[in-house]
């Protein structure tokens, strides 16, 4: 077990180029990385370059079918119910989608993991208080939070992040605490305690690195979950609202057209699937690649492949 903390610094020195070539070798992970990079670029530059194009309406030219260059590249994926180009809208929507999903996952993870570390590491009373708090949040329906926040604070992207993040905190909290409870008892942590390391040091240097992989797995899975939860809220009429656009909202708005204009809901749905898939494939790969105890799997394949 102790090998984890010892092996780490050694691995770090050789990580840079080695990691990239390892990534290149795993084609699936490589493609995922490229896709994610593209999506991030869309999210950053989309609204600036395509914002006007994406909002240009044409009622009489609505639901333009996809796969035709007749009306220019932006209509290659079809037009939506107000005659706006789907492709441009999807690229622009990446901005709010990624902002909400990343904002939610990050803030829920930071708060949840932080509380979980404290709950797992500190005494029983603190732990009890935090865990019961988590119980309260867990049984507080996100729909009510959404309605309260929307009614009191109004619909906006930061408020959406708030709504979604609150509901996602317990999962990080409970996972972290469960793992900490286990890690805390391990030999190297006990040893560090005996040697007089400070609480902060033990938590950050010894416990967090062990807990992190699980958190990352959950966070990557959660990314898709959050995009879909946001879509569900839009479906119920209490989520992101136009003129803001997200993929989730586009899917929800395309729902009535499933039988007449499938592309309205299909493309943004596909984007959610692709993002989720890439993120998870990459994170699965990273889990192995960054874990010295497991890296042999990739190394082994390398020798086999060459």
């Amino acid at each position: 077990m102790a090998d984890i903390s010892i092996a780490k610094p050694a691995a770090e020195t050789a990580r840079g180029p080695n990691l990239l070539s390892m990534l290149w070798r795993d084609k699936l992970a490589f493609v995922s990385a490229v896709v994610l990079l593209l999506i991030v670029l869309f999210a950053i530059f989309g609204p600036t370059f395509l914002g006007d194009l994406a909002t240009k309406q044409n009622l009489r030219g609505r639901n333009f079918p996809p796969f035709s260059f007749e009306r220019g590249w932006e209509f290659f994926l079809g037009g939506d119910s107000l005659g706006r180009p789907m492709l441009a809208r999807m690229i622009v929507a990446a901005h709010s989608t990624i902002l909400i999903a990343a904002g939610t996952v990050l803030s829920a993870m930071i708060v949840g993991a932080g509380l979980g570390l404290v709950a797992g590491y500190m005494g029983k009373t603190t732990s009890q208080v935090i865990m019961r708090l988590a119980d309260v949040i867990m049984s507080f329906p996100s729909l009510l939070i959404a309605v309260v926040v929307l009614y009191v604070l109004g619909p906006s992207i930061p408020n959406m992040i708030l709504v979604l993040a609150i509901t996602r905190i317990p999962i990080y909290l409970r996972t972290t605490r469960a793992e900490v409870l286990e890690v805390r008892e391990r030999m190297f942590v006990q040893a560090a305690t005996v040697m007089g390391a400070s609480h902060a040091r033990i938590i950050l240097r010894h416990i967090l690195p062990v807990v992190a992989p699980t958190l990352v797995t959950i966070a990557t899975l959660d990314f898709a979950f959050v995009m879909l939860a946001e879509s569900s809220l839009s479906f119920l009429g209490i989520g992101v609202q136009p003129p803001d656009i997200t993929w989730g909202l586009m899917v929800a708005q395309g729902r009535p057209y499933l039988s007449t204009a499938w592309w309205l809901a299909f493309w943004p749905g596909l984007m959610i699937v692709i993002t989720a898939l890439s993120l998870n494939l990459l994170s699965n790969w990273m889990r192995v690649a960054l874990d010295p105890a497991q890296r042999w799997r990739l190394e082994a394949r390398k020798t086999k492949n060459v």
Partner: peptide
């Protein structure tokens, strides 16, 4: 209002 009548969002956006 969401769900006020079918396609209310599209109407409002237009």
């Amino acid at each position: 209002r969401t769900e006020n009548f079918p396609n209310v969002t599209e109407v409002a956006e237009a």
